[in-house]
Amino acid sequence: MEEQKEYTAKDFKSDQYVRWCPGCGDHSIVAVLQRAMATLGVPPHETVVISGIGCSSRLPYYMNAYGFHTIHGRAAAVATGVKTANPDLTVWQISGDGDCLAIGGNHFIHSVRRNVDINVVLMNNKIYGLTKGQYSPTSDRGFVTKSSPYGTVEDPFIPAELVFGARGTFFARSLDVEMSVSQEVLVEAARHKGTSVVELLQNCVIFNNNIHSYVADKEFRADRTVHLRHGEKMIFGKGNNRGLVLDGYKLKAVTIGENGVTLDDILVHDAKSPDNFLHQSLAMMDGHELPLAIGVIRNVEAPVYDEEVDRQVKEVTSKVPYSSLREFLLTGETWEVK
Score class of each variant (00 low, 15 high):
Q4Y: 07
K5Q: 14
K10Y: 11
K10I: 11
K13D: 07
K13S: 14
G23H: 04
C24V: 08
C24E: 09
G25S: 03
H27G: 11
Q34P: 03
T39I: 14
G41C: 08
G41Q: 06
P44K: 13
V49W: 13
V49K: 05
S51D: 10
S51Y: 09
S56V: 04
Y62Q: 06
M63P: 00
N64E: 10
A65Y: 01
A65H: 08
G67N: 12
H69Q: 11
H69P: 07
I71R: 00
R74H: 11
A75I: 03
A76H: 13
A76S: 09
A76Q: 06
A76L: 03
T80Q: 15
G81S: 10
T84E: 05
T84Q: 02
P87E: 06
I94D: 01
G96C: 06
D97C: 05
G98F: 02
L101E: 04
A102G: 09
A102I: 09
S111K: 06
S111E: 13
V116L: 04
V116I: 15
N119L: 01
V121W: 07
Y128E: 04
G129T: 14
K132I: 13
Y135N: 10
S136E: 11
P137F: 07
T138F: 11
D140I: 12
G142Y: 05
T145D: 05
P149R: 12
V153H: 13
F157S: 07
I158G: 06
A166H: 04
R167P: 01
T169M: 07
F170K: 00
D176P: 10
V185I: 12
L186V: 00
V187C: 09
V187K: 04
H192F: 06
G194R: 01
G194D: 00
G194H: 01
V197L: 02
V198C: 00
E199G: 03
E199T: 00
L200T: 10
Q202P: 03
F207Y: 15
I211E: 14
H212S: 05
S213V: 14
Y214C: 03
R221H: 12
A222D: 01
D223T: 07
T225V: 09
V226M: 03
V226W: 02
H227Q: 10
H227D: 02
K233Y: 02
M234D: 07
I235V: 13
F236L: 14
K238E: 15
G239A: 13
R242D: 13
D247E: 10
Y249L: 13
L251M: 02
V254A: 06
T255Q: 11
I256T: 06
G257S: 10
N259G: 09
N259M: 12
G260K: 11
H269T: 11
D270G: 01
P274H: 12
P274Q: 11
F277I: 08
S281C: 13
A283I: 07
D286T: 10
E289G: 09
L290K: 07
A293V: 06
R298I: 08
N299I: 05
V300A: 02
V300T: 15
E301Q: 14
E301D: 14
P303N: 02
Y305A: 00
D310W: 12
K314Y: 09
K314V: 05
E315D: 14
L325Q: 09
F328W: 15
G332Q: 11
